[in-house]
Design a protein around this nucleic acid. Structure first.
Length: 661
DNA sequence: CTTTTCACAGTCGCGCGGATGGGA
DNA sequence: TCCCATCCGCGCGACTGTGAAAAG
């Protein structure tokens, strides 16, 4: 498919950097900055003195646990911590502003848990709320009203060709892929790309909204600076990109594709246990940067009916792969990239409607950023990949024996003969499982907590195969309706809520998602990489709970003077870290999340920087063969992931939800 | 010394073919 | 006895990270 056909004249814009603007930044630097309210943020806002933190109160919240809670910048505590974090200074190389997007915690993402605290209802957090607040207009000015598009902010004039000369295939004016589609020029802005173009046929100028399905997992990686392997043959991404879309015209046709652009102008290298910049990025890298979803073009109903996964997208460093393999995106090693989702309305025949250049939307999730590598550098990432990627199961430590540890080694007793289903899933954690299960309505456990009152009936339609477009459209419509009912219902039911309700209420009700009917029940589809379950997100979340860090056996760190946490400097303020510590590391103040590392290892790391360096580079399998301290936790992690994967091949984490004001 | 490439072992899903069982 | 459907095992390929070797 020709890109030109897809997007000729498309006004795909470089989304403004995301998360980037702190409250002060927004006010001082970006009068036109988009007021992106990250609904999710609200879920994580801790209410000191107001009882258990929200993300821990409800089963759902607990389940989402770290990934979610960590992720949200809205966390005041996290913000505070971030502001005072000494680690912040580590990013001198990258530049604070440049990576402002990584400062996942700007105030503007802080959505009060109190629906009326600011005099607005949750709706105000979204574009439909009639919000006319400032929207980042782009450094070069946007040709679009700032009140809209995130994905409509055009890059500075001349940017595409001057800065990114690599995208000659794009028509002049088509900034979309400007050169390796450089995103960084506008980095300091915000960005969570939110599509917001009016959709023909949609009353009130509906704008598409995109949810990052496996966001918890992405966040988990993002926290350590995600790395993606690139090979000549092409390597799949993990986590892979998976979205849910709403707000499209049911009958209109769209092309959906992912573009991977440079996230910053630097060349990176892994040194001293962290990523540091070293020189300029090569902007002249040629090669395909776009991966068109194989189901494109298709109707809005189709796209909204199901999760849109890009699991077959492959990354390569083989420049020659661009011409003959549209499934591969050509990247350059040791460069940081930002995937972007594009939705372009096209004619039924797949040809983009040239008459309306505004029919394109771009969505960017900062947590999708990654550094392309030919070999993993950060062992944390390696371990995360191993732990969560089904294809890497063979590399998991004690995969077989992990479940046979003595009872005394288990975190929790196994009351039944099914240790897997218990020891790894402590109450709160496990309680959340039904939440996910419910989304797919495919697990026996569905009925454990929920009965007829659940949203199941409402979702049946969604889950049922649709025979034709009309049905699909109806289903999609019903999707929104049912979703909304579901969300609202759980909120309105208040105290009568089931665990699910609690979780949802806690996590979403005040988030502002309700009014827009997030799709809580994506259809199960055969194409969605069942063998690549999104449940990894779930697994990642579960894995992050409790004292399960030992399994990672990171060699980095603990004794390092500059930071207890060798996480990339780009995320010194990552609220993930702050939040992460709350539930599982609070006991050891200032301790690394990986403090469970065997002592022998820690001592080595802390005493010898040279050794440390090496250690950081190579993952160690069960150091010392001592599994007593880690096995149980490993079990927990893998078990959770495994169990969930088995039972819920389509399990999806909660969504990251981006919309524009 | 850093980065890239390659072969390797492990897991998993899928397809094929044979075995089995039921019905005509 | 034949036909058909189902089940099961095997082999293949896809995919993963590892670790050594090669390349720069």
């Amino acid at each position: 498919m020709q890109l030109e056909n897809l997007l000729p004249g498309a006004s795909i814009t470089l989304p403004k950097p995301f998360y980037s603007l702190s409250s002060s930044d927004s006010a001082a630097n970006s009068p036109g900055s988009a007021h992106i309210d990250f609904p999710d943020a609200e879920r994580t806002e801790p209410e000191p003195g107001a009882g258990p933190k929200k993300y821990l109160t409800a089963a759902g919240g607990a389940m989402m646990g770290e990934a979610e809670s960590d992720a949200f910048p809205g966390n005041k505590a996290a913000q505070d911590e971030r502001k005072s974090s000494p680690v912040l200074g580590e990013d001198e190389l990258s530049g604070a502003r440049r990576y402002s997007m990584d400062e996942l915690g700007s105030d503007r993402f802080f959505i009060s848990s109190q629906p009326a605290s600011d005099g607005t209802n949750p709706c105000s957090l979204f574009p439909y709320g009639g919000q006319t607040g400032p929207v980042y207009g782009g450094s070069g000015g946007s040709r679009y009203p700032a009140s809209l598009h995130y994905g409509s902010v055009l890059p500075p004039a001349g940017f595409s060709s001057a800065v990114c000369p690599g995208r000659s295939q794009f028509p002049t004016g088509y900034q979309f892929g400007q050169a390796p589609g450089c995103l960084y020029p506008s980095y300091p802005g915000s960005g969570s790309a939110i599509g917001s173009m009016p959709i023909p046929g949609s009353a009130g100028g509906a704008r598409a909204q995109v949810y990052l399905c496996n966001r918890p997992l992405w966040l988990k990686f993002h926290r350590h600076q995600t790395e993606m392997i690139i090979t000549k043959q092409g390597r799949r991404m993990f986590p892979f990109l998976s979205f849910n879309i709403t707000g499209l015209n049911l009958t209109a046709h769209y092309n959906v594709f992912v573009e991977v652009v440079l996230a910053d102008p630097n060349h990176w290298r892994f040194q001293g246990g962290k990523w540091v910049t070293c020189g300029k990025a090569d902007n002249n890298m040629q090669g395909n940067k776009v991966y068109v979803h194989p189901e494109s073009p298709n109707t809005g109903a189709h796209w909204m009916r199901q999760e849109i996964s890009f699991g077959k997208l492959k990354l390569t460093n083989n420049k020659g792969a661009n011409n003959n393999n549209t499934q591969m995106i050509v990247l350059q090693s040791l460069h940081k990239y930002q995937p972007r989702l594009h939705i372009v309305e096209v004619a039924e025949d797949g040809v983009e409607d040239m008459s309306n250049e505004a029919k394109s939307q771009t969505f960017t999730f900062p947590e999708n950023q990654f550094i392309a590598v030919t070999a993993y550098q950060n062992t944390d990432i390696t371990q995360l990949k191993i732990d969560h990627n089904p294809f890497a199961k063979g590399f998991r430590d004690n995969y077989d024996s992990m479940y046979t540890a003595p009872e005394s080694d288990r975190l929790t007793p196994s009351p039944t003969d099914s240790p897997r289903s218990h020891q790894i899933v402590p109450g709160a954690r496990y309680a959340m499982q039904p939440f996910f299960q419910d989304q797919f309505n495919n697990l026996p456990q569905n009925h454990r907590f929920y009965t007829g009152e659940r949203a199941v009936p409402q979702t049946n339609g969604l889950l049922s195969p649709q025979s034709d477009e009309a049905a699909a459209a109806a289903a999609a419509a019903a999707s929104a309706a049912s979703a909304q009912r579901w969300f609202v219902g759980s909120v309105q039911q208040g105290g009568a809520s089931t665990k699910l309700d609690l979780s949802y209420d806690s996590d979403y009700s005040a988030s502002g998602l309700l009014p827009y009917g997030i799709k809580p029940l994506p259809l199960q589809t055969s194409h969605a990489l069942g063998y690549y379950p999104d449940s990894a997100a779930f697994a990642s979340m579960a894995a992050s709970w409790g004292s399960t860090r030992g399994s990672y056996q990171r060699k980095v760190t603990t004794g390092l003077p500059w930071s207890p946490r060798p996480s990339p400097p780009a995320f010194p303020e990552d609220p993930l870290a702050a939040k992460d510590k709350l539930p599982e590391e609070g006991v050891v103040a200032g301790a690394s999340p990986w403090m469970d590392t065997p002592h022998s290892l820690k001592s080595v790391d802390s005493s010898d920087s040279g050794v440390y360096s090496m250690v950081c580079k190579r993952r160690r399998m069960s150091p010392g063969g001592s599994s007593t301290d880690t096995s149980p936790t490993i079990k927990c992690e893998d078990l959770t992931a495994d169990e969930y994967n088995k039972d819920n091949p389509k399990g999806m984490g909660y969504y990251a939800f981006y919309t524009s004001p």
